[in-house]
Each structure stands twice: as structure tokens, then as C-alpha cells.
Design a protein around this nucleic acid. Structure first.
Lengths: 197, 197
DNA sequence: TTCGCTACCTATCATTGATAGGTTGACACG
DNA sequence: CGTGTCAACCTATCAATGATAGGTAGCGAA
């Protein structure tokens, strides 16, 4: 087994993922064809299938990548200096900022309709998401110094609230929102407050 | 202009909408073809286009219909008897229940990716959504006895929180949620509390 | 009867995701 | 220096999809 071809294959894979993400961002995840992706990369459309099982597989891999980025940002916030409340707020800001900046990734990870992906891929996405949520849950446990059902409820509720803001801002940009930053701050303030009830 | 044919046409339209909604619920909005809808109705696939501009147009009309149902439920909660807090909680329960029961409608209304719908349709959906949100906003104004930016912020934040819970429960059913009813109650309790800050 | 119009049909299109099967060029090895 | 192997890529093609073109049946009005 030679090394060079494998290296090139990995590069191609990355190249495809990057171009796909760019196109998804520009035109919406559902409005990009495999032919457009292939053209952007500079290869034929069937060649994509040498690197990915299906079009959906590309989206799945981008989703996993997105979860990793989000996990990293949330973990950084969790271990930052500051009071527990500050760390919670910081994590919320990272979460919302990630969703708004990486909207294509966020859509793929959280907002796409249930697909017909293979169980293996479903499992992979699920575990990525679990790792992500675990960071939030752990911070709630630390803040409340307990690990009971109530803490789990609060963490899940907080996650839902943060997701809701990102999802609505992304899917309804034409809505007459108040100043976006003010809304985010207000929203996160109330979300964080729950942890200290 | 005769009357009978028009009546029949309206019936067909309703029939198509009903079958489409049923199929969307069963198989997911993205996984239903125009041929399947036509077959369920008992007409040829091109005949659908005598009643709707496009496949997307069917989804748009279902979306508007969904908003009307949701508005009705929220309005009923707003004008029910009880303390303001109770009415808020009741409205939240109606919102979440609607989303979970009418998941296809909710998906179409709130969770579908930006489409290429004609501006006219976009506008119609937007106004349906506005009317829906106005009911929540009005209740917040009543509860807080004020109509300022802060009240708008709280209402938008509350909407985001409720949407987030519905959206996550729908899109991640495999997540290890705590007892669903307990989570909803806990979540709504915190959402409602904001109105009285 | 004949006109006209509505609702429907069959036939067909371009585009899509995906597969089949052949070609090329770099590297390993005699 | 030939020569085999194999990864990476290509062209040709498929079935399914959303959508359009054009024709027809049947009903009410004149």
C-alpha cells in the first residue's frame, strides 16, 4: 500500500467537504446538487461516490464535523475562568454564535428532516450530539452540585431554549426581531438563571 | 360561470391537501413524491398542477392552514379563564401539543429550509406567522401591562424557547429525554416565569 | 345540436441521485 | 527497463422526480 495516493484521497475528501459546505451555505442544503459539488471540486459527478457513499453521506460527515467544532467551543467556555454563571452565559453565547456563523453546519446537524441514512451514520450523528450535550449537562451538574432528574430537566430545557433561538433566527430572518444582540443577551440571561433556581 | 365544477374543484383541492398532509406525516415531508400524492387521491400526477402551482405550493398551503389551527388554539388559551400566568402556561401547552400532534404541519410551517417559493407565497406564510406570534405578544403585553422593547424581547425569547423544545423533540426523538410531560411542564414553567420579572 | 370550458388524461421533458464498466498513470518488483 | 497492480478517475447510462405540452371527455348554456 503506497502512501501518496491515500494522502491525495484524504485531500480530495477534504476538498469535497469544503466545497459542499460552501455551496450549502450559499444556496441552502437542499438546493445543491451532486453535479454542482463535483463541478466546484473539478471532478466528474460520479467521482464523488468514490469518496462518499451518497449525497447524504456528505451531509452526515459535515454534520459530525460541525458537532466537533461546537463541542470544542462549548468545552472552551466550560473550562474558562469566571463564575459558574459567567461560564454558562459564555457557553450560551458560543452556542448561538456558532449556529449563526456556521448556519449550514447547524442546519445539517439539527434542522434537517429525518433522513434515510444508514443506522451506522445515524448512530454516529447521535453520539456526536450526545457528546455535545454532555458538555452542557456537566456544567449544569457542576453549577447545581447535583446530578439528579431535575438537573437533567433543566439542562435539556436550556438546550431547547438555545436551539430555539438559533433555529428561529435562521429560519425566519424576515421576522421583525428586536436588535439581535439584545435579544440573544436577554434570552441567555433567562436561560442561565434557571440553573441557579 | 357554472357553480358545480367550482365546487368540485374545491373538494379536489381539499382532498389533495388532506392526502398530502397524511403522507407527509407518515413518511416525512421530503420523502413524498407528487406521484404518491396523486395516487393517494386517485388522479394522474400532472393533474395536481391544475390545482397547485408546484409541489412546494401544496406545502405552502398546508403551512398556512397549520398556522390558522395554531392561532386558533393559542387564541383560545389567551381568552380562557384563569390568572395571566395560567393563561400563559395554557398557551404554551397548546403550542407544544400542536407541534407534537401536527408534526408535519409544524415542520412545514417552521422547520423547512428556505425555499424558492414565490414572493407572494413567502409573504402569505410570513403574515400567517405574524398573526400567530401576535397572539403571544399580546398576552405578554397584557400580563406585563406594557408595550415596550423589553416586553417584545421577552415575547420573542419565549417563542424561541417554546419552538426549541418542539423542534428538538421532533428532530431528535432518539435522544434520552427525561419524561416528556415532565420536561414540557418544567420548560413552560420557566418560560412563563419570565413574563413576570 | 353545437359551443365553450373545466377537469382530466397520456406522452414527454430536463434534472436528479446513483451505478456499471472501462481507462490512466504512478508505484512495486523482477 | 518492462510489466503487473491498483487507486482514482472518466464516460455512458439508469430510474425516479418535478414539471410542461397538448389532446379529450363531459357537462351546462345558447
Amino acid at each position: 500500500m503506497t502512501v501518496a495516493p491515500t494522502q491525495r484521497t484524504e485531500d480530495r475528501r477534504e476538498q469535497i467537504l469544503n466545497e459542499a459546505m460552501r455551496l450549502f451555505l450559499d444556496h441552502g442544503v437542499q438546493n445543491v446538487s451532486t453535479r454542482e459539488i463535483a463541478k466546484a471540486v473539478g471532478i466528474s459527478q460520479p467521482s464523488l461516490y468514490a469518496h462518499f457513499k451518497s449525497r447524504e453521506d456528505i451531509a452526515v460527515k459535515l454534520s459530525e464535523r460541525a458537532f466537533e467544532q461546537l463541542s470544542a467551543r462549548m468545552a472552551a467556555a466550560a473550562s474558562s475562568t469566571g463564575t459558574p454563571h459567567e461560564r454558562l452565559h459564555s457557553m450560551g453565547q458560543e452556542y448561538v454564535a456558532f449556529g449563526l456563523e456556521q448556519s449550514a453546519a447547524y442546519r445539517i446537524a439539527f434542522m434537517l428532516e429525518k433522513t434515510t441514512a444508514h443506522p451506522t451514520d445515524q448512530q454516529a450523528i447521535h453520539e456526536s450530539g450526545m457528546r455535545c450535550f454532555a458538555i452542557l449537562h456537566d456544567l449544569f451538574k457542576t453549577v447545581r452540585n447535583s446530578d439528579d432528574l431535575n438537573t437533567a430537566a433543566l439542562a435539556q430545557s436550556a438546550w431547547a431554549s438555545m436551539h430555539g433561538l438559533v433555529a428561529l433566527l435562521l429560519s425566519r430572518p424576515e421576522f421583525p426581531w428586536i436588535d439581535q444582540n439584545a435579544l440573544i443577551t436577554c434570552h441567555l440571561e433567562h436561560v442561565c438563571r434557571r440553573a441557579f433556581d
